[in-house]
Simulated assay, not measured.
Amino acid sequence: MTDNQRENFGPRLKEIRLAKKMTLHEFYGVISKHVNNFSPIENGARSIGKRLSEDVIRHYHINEAWLATGLGNMFTDDELNTATLANRYDSTEGVPFININPSEICSGEFNILREKPEYYVNFRPFNDCDAYLPVYGDSMYPKYASGEIIAVREVINKDIIQWGEAYLIIADEYANNITTVKLLFEHDSNSKIVLRASNPNYKGDTILDRNAIKKLFLVKGKITRNQL
């Protein structure tokens, strides 16, 4: 995509965001720390940089030809992303519920998005998520209690983290294949992050190398089983 084309696709980004019924923070918060910068971009007052535009395109599987010209389909439909897109954007089906204990996930070649769902949940506030997962244990109580269900959305750019928010972290063998839901906080070293339970009875932080993270999912919220 040329620089001239990037200067003109702000309004089309807004069209995508509104079609997904997302606020500026919801749409861009997983990509950039500076969400307010996207308002003038959407209004055509400023252009978007090459790196940032690539992050948006990759995260939302946007058809670059449509973004540049307005012609064709809004989203890509390549084979690898078809299932994920169907879950994200088909509100009649909803988001898949994967009945697996996150702590039992071993990184390896595991891809949570390819697991067979038990059923689909159609709940508009979280219909942009990738999956629902059950909560086990009480390390995140009272934020998330055992038996509740969390809605997670994969983070593409792992350098953009909303500090103090809960994430599902899937680490590699160098971090003992840790898979857990924890609050994330900044570490003094930019190469590390701090994992912390919300339950005050679980004392002590876990320090994790950023490079050890295989997959990262933002926990956007929760539902209880009686809401299904």
Rank of each mutant, 00 (worst) to 15 (best):
I98G: 03
D55Q: 08
T92W: 04
E42A: 04
P11N: 13
N81A: 15
K33L: 07
R88H: 10
R51L: 12
I98L: 03
R46F: 06
R46E: 05
S53F: 04
L85R: 11
Q5F: 09
E64F: 04
L113C: 09
K20H: 06
N73C: 09
R88G: 02
L67D: 00
P40N: 09
N87K: 14
I31V: 15
C106S: 10
G10L: 13
D90A: 10
Y60H: 02
E118C: 10
L85T: 04
N43M: 14
Y60T: 06
I112Y: 00
Y120L: 14
I112F: 01
I62F: 00
E115N: 08
N101V: 07
I48K: 01
R12H: 12
K20A: 04
F9G: 02
E104L: 07
N99L: 06
I41A: 05
L71H: 13
L52W: 07
H25Y: 15
H25Q: 11
R114I: 10
G29K: 00
V35W: 08
M74K: 11
V95E: 06
S103R: 04
S91C: 12
F110D: 02
S47T: 07
R51N: 12
N8P: 05
M22P: 01
P96T: 09
I62G: 01
Y89N: 08
T23R: 01
D77Q: 11
S107L: 11
W66I: 03
E7N: 13
E15T: 14
S107M: 13
E79F: 12
H59R: 09
N63A: 02
S103E: 07
A19C: 14
D90E: 07
E42R: 11
T84V: 13
E93S: 13
R46Y: 05
R46M: 06
G29Q: 00
Y120C: 05
D78F: 13
A83G: 07
G108W: 11
L52M: 14
